[in-house]
């Protein structure tokens, strides 16, 4: 059943982004051919290149704003609005509904980031010599591989993991805020915003009581460089996971026990 939920959530996501992602890539491609005009001699070319670049940047920004709105709407309308009458009477458990929405939102954001990165590469000049040099560099790197580099790769992966977990935590905080907001019979959107602010303040206050700040202090911990960095990043990941767990449990409890559809 969970797989089927994912299927429908991803289907609505692709409907939403079927235009935005290709548009961002297509505009990047157009920029690739017009970008030389920016520093060119013709003022027409300059203006065209400038406008095309502006549209590209606008589409890229729109893409991330749409991803955020999509995340909020799929939860607010899909589970707490009229569509909730359908979703909450399907033979599934509330945690499955939340997890499916969350996975879909995280994947949507990641795909948007990937589209943005690919689009930047599309704009850059396609220079065979530059590619050759990059590959030569990689070749050199692999032939001189050492422990430090393995460690650097791990650090990079840890940073990526931290970003992913933070993203999920952020979305779960939104979910909990909206779930709290929907408990009110009036002004649900305003109450959701207030809930979000209060949760932020509470989690900030609680964090300040944590004794673990010593871990970030090179003198107190006695750690240096990569060691210190790695410890810090794992503490940060752990903190985010604790937040996620609290937000998820809160949201699940509200949907299971306190559902209050209009």
């Amino acid at each position: 059943m969970f797989g089927k939920l994912l299927k429908y959530d991803f289907r609505s996501m692709f409907k939403q982004f079927a235009f935005v992602w290709p548009a961002a890539l297509a505009l990047a491609l157009v920029n690739h051919f017009t970008i030389d005009g920016i520093e060119g001699s013709s003022s027409v070319g300059e203006t065209t290149a400038g406008i095309v670049m502006m549209i590209y940047v606008a589409i890229l920004m729109a893409m991330f704003i749409i991803a955020l709105i999509f995340t909020i709407q799929r939860f607010f309308k899909g589970l707490l609005g009229d569509e909730g009458y359908l979703m909450h009477t399907l033979p599934v458990k509330p945690w499955q509904l939340i997890t499916s929405k969350l996975l879909c939102a995280v994947v949507t954001t990641m795909l948007s980031v990937i589209v943005a990165i690919v689009s930047i590469f599309l704009i850059l000049p396609w220079d065979a010599e530059a590619f050759r040099q990059v590959f030569q560099g990689l070749d050199y790197l692999f032939s001189h591989w050492n422990e430090e580099m393995t460690r650097a790769v791990f650090c990079l992966l840890e940073v990526l993991l931290f970003m992913l977990v933070s993203l999920a935590t952020g979305y779960l905080q939104l979910y909990l805020s909206m779930s709290i907001g929907h408990l009110f019979n009036k002004n649900r959107v305003a109450m959701s915003v207030i809930a979000f602010i209060v949760i932020n303040a509470l989690s900030g206050t609680l964090l300040s009581f944590l004794p673990s700040w010593d871990a970030f202090d090179p003198f107190a911990s006695g750690l240096r460089g990569m060691d210190l960095f790695q410890r810090a990043i794992w503490i940060a990941i752990g903190t985010e996971l604790v937040h996620s767990a609290v937000y998820f449990i809160g949201t699940e409890f509200i949907l299971r026990k306190k559902l209050n559809l209009e």
């Binding site: 059943m1 609505s12 409907k15 309308k77 899909g78 009229d82 009458y85 359908l86 599934v92 458990k93």
Partner: peptide, 21 residues
């Protein structure tokens, strides 16, 4: 009440419950 009972109940609410697309 849970997934099993939901699988054997067919419910017509007093409102529209689907997305327009």
């Amino acid at each position: 009440i849970g997934p099993y009972t939901k699988s054997i109940i067919s419910y017509l609410p007093d409102r529209m419950y689907f997305s327009d697309w």
